[in-house]
């Protein structure tokens, strides 16, 4: 029997809110699928479109960018720049025909361990029917 497809997700989490939120999920022993590898960055505003393309290029089945809620950015407004930048990346990925489910953005505060858990669980469930992401995966 073929093994069930387990999507590989790269999650760029801002240090102050989303990474802290995922820590809270841990402290609260909430359970979510182990498909996501978190990469903590200082701010969602520091996530370059290159990171996202690179993750897909290196074979990610899904990519998540998560930052502080608007108004709560540790760096005052980094998440607002992220919101605009990510919106454009999402439109572009959609336009070239990548499944929109594969690229997500979320606001997760340091208090939202539950929300983080939910986002990851939903993300994994949404990616499973899509199968492996091969469209942008490096193939040389």
């Amino acid at each position: 029997m073929a093994e069930q497809f387990e999507p590989r997700i790269v999650a760029f989490l801002c240090k102050w809110c989303s990474s802290a939120g995922s820590d809270l999920a841990g402290v609260s022993r909430m359970q979510y699928p182990p498909n996501v590898i978190p990469i903590t960055v200082m701010c969602s505003g520091s996530v370059s479109p290159l990171y996202i393309f690179d993750a897909f290029n290196k074979g990610a089945d899904g990519v998540l960018v998560s930052g502080c809620h608007p108004g709560d950015c540790h760096y005052i407004k980094g998440n607002y720049y992220a919101r605009r930048r990510i919106a454009i990346v999402k439109k572009l990925l959609d336009f070239i025909g990548l499944e929109p489910e594969r690229f997500q953005m979320s606001w997760v505060s340091a208090a939202e361990g539950k929300k983080y858990t939910q986002i990851i669980s939903d993300f994994v469930e949404e990616l499973k029917p899509l199968g492996p992401q091969t469209k942008l995966r490096r193939n040389i």
Binding site: Y81, M105, I119, D122
Partner: peptide, 11 residues
Amino acid sequence: FKDEDPEDFIR
């Protein structure tokens, strides 16, 4: 950016 930039795509 503007405060009212769309964010309906964000979870």
